[in-house]
Design a protein around this nucleic acid. Sequence first.
RNA 1: GGUCGGUUGGCCGAGUGGUCAGGCAACGGUCUGCAAAACCGUCUACGGCGGUUCGAAUCCGCCACCGACCUCCA
Length: 491
Amino acid sequence: MSDLIIYNTLSRKKEIFKPLNPGHVGMYVCGPTVYGEAHLGHSRPAITFDLLFRYLKHLGYKVRYVRNITDVGHLVNDADEGEDKIAKKAKVEELEPMEIVQLYTNSYRRNMGQLNVLPPSIEPSASGHIIEQIEAVQQLIDSGFAYEINGSVYFDVEKFASVHTYGKLSGRKIEDLYSNTRDLDAQSEKRSGLDFAVWKNAAAEHLMKWPSPWGEGFPGWHIECTAMSTKYLGESFDIHGGGLDLLFPHHEAEIAQGMACYGHDPVHYWMHNNLITINGQKMGKSLGNFITLDELFTGSHALLEKAYSPITIRFFILQAHYRSPLDFSNDALQAAEKGLERLLKAVALLDKLIPASVSTVNVPELSDKFYAAINDDLNTPVLIAHLFDGVKLINSANDGKATINEGDLTLLKRLYHDFTFDILGFRSESAEGVSDHEAILGDVVDLLLNLRVEAKNNKDWGTSDKIRNSLIDLGFEIRDNKEGFSWELKK
RNA sequence: GGUCGGUUGGCCGAGUGGUCAGGCAACGGUCUGCAAAACCGUCUACGGCGGUUCGAAUCCGCCACCGACCUCCA
C-alpha cells in the first residue's frame, strides 16, 4: 500500500506522513469560538479533520486528537472596542458569560454528533487553562520576546524576526508587513504595529477576566493554542489543522510563540482546509451570510429550498477536496443527497448478494484505488468516485450481469464497511432509532403492498396501481422485484 | 496596494503533457402489465491571447475576472 501523503502548508508541498513517535500521532485543530450557533462553515474543518482522525486510526495509529473550545478574550470588531465578545452577548441576553459558553458548546457538540463527527480525544477550553496561558506568557517575557505595558503583554515581533523567521507559514515578508501597517499604527501602546497581544489588560466593566502577574486581564487570542497544544501534545507534535482563514495571523503567531518558548518549530505538518462560500463569498459570522447547521437540518432559512440531512452535508463536503473552495447551492446539495442515497443503497445491497463461483470483477484493484485516493492528501472526491465504480459493480451483480466469488464478496463488504462508514463517516439515517410508531407504519405498508401483490397476481391492475400511486403520493418509493417488492419512505 | 490561491461540460466537482474522473440533471435503450429502481448508451468541457512541444485543459508568459488573508477581533 502507498504511503499517506499530506500537503504541508509550511513547505507548500505534499509530504509523506511520518509521525514523530512511531505508531502515535498528536493532532491539534482550532475549534470554535462559542458565542453563536455553529454554521455550515464550522462543519468543514470539523469534518475534514474528523476524516483524518478516523483514517489515522484505521491505519492503526494511536491518535491523540485535541480540538479546543475558545471561550475567552475575544474582542468585538465593530462597536464597543475592548469589550469581550462573550461578555457582550451576555449582557444582551442577560445571562452569565459562562452560561453562553455552555449553551453554544452544547449546541456545537450536538451538531457535530449529528454530522457523525467523532468527539476529539481532548476538548480543552481556554477558560480552563488560564494558568497554563499565564505561564506561557511569562515564558515569553523571560525569553525576551514579549514585553509588558500598562498591564498588557505583547509579543515583540521585530525582536523575534531578528533571531528567527517570522512569516514562513503564510509566506509574508516582514518588510511587506511593515509597509502595509504603517497607517494603522497610530493609537497603539505597542512598540510596533506588528506586535500582537499575548495578555490583555481588562477594563473595569469587562466581565471575563482573571488575575495575573500583570493585573486583571485575559489571554491574547493566539496564546491559548500554544499553551494547550503544548500541555497535551508536547513542544513538538505532528499535525496542526484549521481553516485557511486562520493561517495568518493566528497560526503564524503560534509558530512564533512556540519558537520563542522552545527554540524550535512546534508543528511538523500544518494543514488548512479551504472555506465554504455562499455566492462565491466566504461564509462567516462577521459577514452575516451564514446558514446555521440547525437551519440546514430543518430547512428553516430563506436560502434553503428544503431541509438537508446532516450526512448529506457531510457527503457534500467530502465530495470536494478539503483544500478547494466549496460553494453552497441548493442544486449541489440536492445532487449530493441523491448520490449519497445511491451509495448507501448499494452498500446495503452487498449483504443480499449471493456469491458465485467466479468473479468477473477485480476487487483487489478496487481496494488499491481506494487507498491510493485517500493516501493522496485525503482525496475524498476521487475516493468517492471509485466508490461509485464499485456501486456499479454491486448493482450489476445484483442484476445478474456480473458475478463475485465468496472471497471477493467478503473483501468487498469489509472494504465498503471500512470506507463508507468507518473512514468517511457516512451512515444510513433512516435506519437509526426506529420508534414503535415507525415499526407499525412499516408493517402497515407491507400489508398494503402484499395486497397489491395479490391484485397483481389477479391482473387487477386498477387496484394494484391505486395502492402504489396512493403510497407514492404519500411520499413512498415503491420498487417491484422478483421476490415481490421493496419500499422506502422518501423526504 | 501587498501576499497567496482559483477560473473545467446544464449544475457540483476531480485530474493528467497524448488514452473514462465521479455525482446530479437531460435524452435514448434494456427490464417491467405500466411504473420505480437497476443496467447499457448519448451529451466530450477545461477564462482570453501568445509561447514551448510531434502533441497542452495540463508547462511558460501576459491579460481579464473571482476569492482568502493583510497583525483589534474571528
